[in-house]
């Protein structure tokens, strides 16, 4: 699949933004400037970006506890994201949600999620909206190898199969659910094989290769858009950091992590391939890195300078309308 130059540049910028955002979040978290928990997406950028490159703002995605990458891939503003992580009033969710609950419906981002597998049925709902309202939009649900073992995965896929929903289910198999290997927790050879049980296409994707993700996601999304029903893609990928920041990672060796960083870095490999093929130049890519670096810097400054929410905001946004009289 030939990718136009403009698209290649956009893809690189999104992947670089995710990587730099996550590296910076790691520092900010370590310095106690970001409260709560963070789960970093670094290493898996090709999946979110390769899939979302085919989506518009009207196409919806659902995400996971490891959601920053999906948000950036879908076009959520990094300043508003950083302010959300900082817990500030200017955050994309006004400081109410934090890392695990970033959402921006204007960008088609239906939420990160603190519940494993929680987003899968929601994506079915977004696909149902498109189907019932007669729009040609699709819904994509990202979830992990752990999420594929939840009942919500099986019920969601069955529903999508029964109703032939315009949905794509993207299993990001990074090998580990917290500290539990997917070799231990996933029955059957692979997650993609479960598609057959629900009457949909299923495919294993090299999630560490942007081009493989881009091509296979492109086909699945086009099919969903054309009314040809859902697809399950299993993207084999790898996370560079622990389950959450603070995870000591006693379940995998540092050598294994280094091997992936060295030889399976999606950004490095994308850069090598596009420059080797003379599709892009180092200068173009360096310029992107610089621009991204500036945008992350200004996002942090924006977050740090933003006001805290007012205590009275606690009771706002629970309902659309709610009157109790005493």
């Amino acid at each position: 699949m030939e990718i136009p130059k403009e698209k290649l540049l956009e893809i690189y910028e999104r992947m670089a933004t995710i990587r730099q955002f996550e590296e910076r979040v790691r520092e900010e978290f370590a310095a106690n400037r970001i409260p709560g928990f963070v789960h970093l997406y670094a290493g898996e950028e090709a999946v979110a970006v390769g899939v979302c490159a085919h989506l518009t703002d009207e196409d919806m995605i659902t995400s996971t506890h490891r959601g920053h990458g999906h948000c950036i891939a879908k076009g959520v503003d990094v300043k508003a994201m950083m302010a959300e992580l900082y817990g500030r009033a200017t955050g994309v969710c006004k400081g109410k949600g934090g890392s695990m609950h970033i959402a921006d419906l204007d960008r088609g981002m239906l939420g990160a999620n603190g519940i494993v597998g929680g987003g899968i049925p929601l994506a079915c709902g977004a696909a149902l909206s498109a189907q019932v309202l007669g729009k040609d939009n699709v819904a994509v649900s990202f979830f992990g190898d752990g999420g594929a073992n939840e009942g919500s995965f099986h019920e969601g896929l069955n529903l999508a199969g029964v109703w032939q929903l315009p949905a794509v289910f993207v299993a990001e198999n990074n090998g580990w659910a917290e500290s539990t290997s997917s070799d231990y927790s996933v029955a059957g050879a692979d997650i993609a094989g479960r598609a057959r049980a629900y009457g949909m296409r299923g495919e294993v994707v090299d999630g560490l290769d942007l081009f493989d993700v881009y091509e296979k996601a492109g086909k699945a999304i086009a099919a969903a858009r054309a009314g040809e029903g859902p697809t399950l893609l299993e993207c084999k990928t790898y996370r560079f950091y622990g389950h959450h920041e603070g995870d000591k990672q006693g379940y995998r060796s540092q050598e294994e992590v280094e091997e992936y960083r060295k030889n399976h870095c999606v950004i490095k490999n994308f850069r090598a391939r596009t420059t080797d093929e003379r599709a892009l130049t180092d200068e173009e890519l360096d310029e992107i890195e610089t621009r991204v670096s500036e945008s992350i810097e200004s996002a942090v400054a924006y977050a740090a300078d933003s006001p805290w929410p007012e205590p009275s905001d606690v009771t706002e946004d629970v309902y659309v309308d709610y009157k109790e009289v005493l």
Partner: peptide, 19 residues
């Protein structure tokens, strides 16, 4: 429960109790 021991399926010999 999930990760009550930890490291299930890990190839490392000392992965037990990593969680």
């Amino acid at each position: 429960g999930e990760d009550v021991v930890g490291g299930a399926g890990s190839k490392l010999p000392d992965a037990e109790d990593c969680w």
